[in-house]
Design a protein around this nucleic acid. Structure first.
Length: 363
DNA sequence: TCTGGGGTCCTGCGGCGT
DNA sequence: TCTGACGCCGCAGGACCC
């Protein structure tokens, strides 16, 4: 097999950068894009705001305490989608094999190219000139190395590494740096004395399997060695779609919950119909005031996408569950879409092999 | 500190048919 | 008729990602 070469392009503070184009007077100042409700969280913070400890997914109330002088702006996803579309069009005009991972990042397969690095440098320059957006670039023999490299020198980074170089460079970093190792796995690793990527790499797959199971164990070992053979794949078919809402105040009355489920089902079904999707499994998600979250599901004989059926089933599931505490979030999901062959057999050996080609471009 | 919304995949378990 | 092994499916929860 010929040596692969993959680039990962990651936008620098994507949403904030777009907001700064509309509000140039805020350049160089702490800016936070966040929802305004009492239970909202931060979507993106400018690098100036990050110096105060503000970060993504942090409750907005906390961000305001940490950096009261920051300008808080509500997210405008339609605008961000437009900008992303423009960037993807530029990338596609120069490269054939790309994989979009969200609004602000993508992979490019450079394997067959003559001078790939120069080509990517030209690309990010062109994106900057035409859109005003800056990107950090990571290049490596696989997606894992490319992804970690793109994050290493943000903003405006350009880092190319082999797997061996990545192993050396990040040897003393926390395993949390590796995509696929989240807070839970990282904490569990720490509990057994593994606090660095080097330590994880030095642990045998067998020993890891004992702790993490037959799949995750060897997977963690490969991650630590920066081994990754997952392909660049253009598109994936969606397998489910959902709508959920956190209420600014917890709901107690069952009738009010039914009303919310009906609204969510309607929103969900109009989107399903627009996409031509129908599914057999309807589920609800209920988050109680103490933050415990439960899901309840029912699989029907027929594929459906009409809001009457979805609402009815969702309400029946809620009635059967009968929440014992006030409810802070309700969600409705339709899964098990028809067509496309039986998606049952997973062709993906990697636990993290999930390509989020989701609701990116519906305005 | 008080935790969004929209996704994917994995794991473990129990029911059921063969 | 009963029992056990096995595989499939649905369900629930968990972990992770952007």
């Amino acid at each position: 097999m010929t040596e692969r070469m993959i680039a990962h392009l990651d936008a620098d503070a994507f949403y904030v950068s777009i907001e700064l184009q509309r509000h140039p007077e805020l350049r160089g100042k702490p800016v936070v894009v966040a929802g305004s409700g009492p239970r909202s969280v931060v979507t993106t913070a400018s690098y100036e705001a990050r110096e105060y400890g503000v970060g993504s997914a942090m409750p907005t109330t906390r961000a305001r305490r940490l950096c009261p002088q920051a300008t808080f702006l509500p997210p405008d996803f339609n605008c961000y989608r437009k900008a992303a579309k423009q960037v993807f069009a530029i990338v596609r005009s120069h490269f054939e094999q790309i994989e979009v991972m969200g609004l602000d990042e993508l992979y490019i397969d450079l394997s067959e190219m003559v001078s790939p690095r120069a080509a990517v440098r030209r690309l990010v320059n062109e994106i900057a000139e035409r859109t005003g957006l800056s990107y950090s670039v990571g290049i490596g023999p696989n997606k894992l190395v490319a992804k970690v490299a793109s994050d290493a020198e943000k903003p405006k980074g350009f880092v190319a590494l082999t797997s061996e170089q990545a192993r050396q460079r990040f040897a003393q970093s926390t395993p949390r740096l590796l995509p696929g190792i989240g807070p839970k796995t990282s904490a569990k690793l720490s509990r057994i004395g593994i606090d660095t990527i080097a330590a994880l790499a030095a642990t045998s797959p067998e020993a890891l399997s004992e702790q993490f199971g037959e799949r995750l164990g060897p997977y963690l070992h490969r991650r630590a060695h920066f081994q990754d053979d997952s392909p660049i794949s253009e598109e994936r078919e969606a397998v489910s779609e959902s709508r959920e809402r956190t209420f600014s105040q917890d709901i107690v009355e069952l009738e009010a919950m039914y009303e919310q489920l009906a609204k969510l089902s309607e929103r969900l079904c109009s989107s399903l119909q627009a996409r031509g999707h129908r599914g057999r499994t309807i589920s609800i998600k209920v988050r109680l005031s103490n933050f415990t979250t439960v899901t309840r599901a029912r699989t029907l004989e027929k594929f459906v996408n009409d809001s009457t059926t979805v609402t009815t089933v969702a309400c029946e599931l809620l009635r059967a569950y009968a929440p014992a505490k006030p409810v802070r979030l309700l969600g409705v999901r339709v899964a098990g879409f028809e067509q496309g062959g039986q998606a049952q057999q997973s062709t993906q050996p990697e636990p993290t092999k999930k390509l989020q080609q989701r609701l990116l471009f519906d305005d």
